[in-house]
Design a protein around this nucleic acid. Sequence first.
DNA 1: AAGCGATATGTTATAAAATTACATGAGGTA
DNA 2: TACCTCATGTAATTTTATAACATATCGCTT
Lengths: 160, 160
Amino acid sequence: MQMKAFDAHDHDGCISAGIVAAERHCAEHALQLTPVRRRVLEILLSEHKALGAYDILEQLRADGLGSQPPVAYRALDFLVSHGFVHRIERLNAFVACSHGENAHTPAFLICRACKRVTEAETDPATSELARAAQRAGFVIERTVREAEGLCPGCAEVSRA
Amino acid sequence: MQMKAFDAHDHDGCISAGIVAAERHCAEHALQLTPVRRRVLEILLSEHKALGAYDILEQLRADGLGSQPPVAYRALDFLVSHGFVHRIERLNAFVACSHGENAHTPAFLICRACKRVTEAETDPATSELARAAQRAGFVIERTVREAEGLCPGCAEVSRA
DNA sequence: AAGCGATATGTTATAAAATTACATGAGGTA
DNA sequence: TACCTCATGTAATTTTATAACATATCGCTT
């Protein structure tokens, strides 16, 4: 299991791996990783933090790549719908996926102090949500699992 | 486990039980269940659906109980912070709690067709989120667990 | 090459959700 | 009374998201 966001690591690798994975997936599925989409993904890959659409838009603007909200939202829709980026409902914000390109059911740990977000792979079948749904006869199409709190580093600081 | 929202039931009982539980809790804890707060709780108890703050505000306005957004948001903040109401992050909306007054870690099943929301009690300790947090050394303060899909009734209709 | 459909982007305007800041009011209590 | 706390009233603004319509680009067909 990867849980890089809260640990020191070679972050340049995260960026290039994310871009490469997206490029490959797009090539294989006849999808267009256009300049705007690619740039939005890069922006999100540049830190393990969730960014709001307007934060991203600001950076796009600085790059001369689009200045109106729909530009950012459309790129984000594309990236989210193909699994390159996840939306964090709790924050109305977005993070780059950190699990290569395969479909998955992620859970997120959101540090309220340093704002980093880490993605944990979960087994949807064994979750409480799935069990509750089964008991109720409910057909799940999408789930949101997000925990807010303190990452190891920030928890330690706050105890000190 | 209660999972009333998707089943036929004596709904008047839900409303009065919700109000009574809130009244009692407020009396015991020296909290004020003011007319606006009480009315917002009633509005939310009147259906097992999530309502946006502005939907609620509209009803308050009709009742002459307040017409500006902060009125609704303040009442909702109060009700949420004392556990009488839950916020559904996925919908930016609110539902009345259906589990009496004790603190709990609910999960929600949201039907995208009929819009009803049901609350399932979960054991936070055994959840995927808790396991992931434990592995990472993350201290959870709050969790969001929401599943979107089709309730039993709407799933059947869509299969027909 | 001209025309066509599909996909992506540019731009204006607006909607929806939430908060800030400051004024007012209703109770208790010293 | 004077004061404090809690709750409400109100105006203005900020933040997040979408609708609607125009333009551009690319591949395909004829």
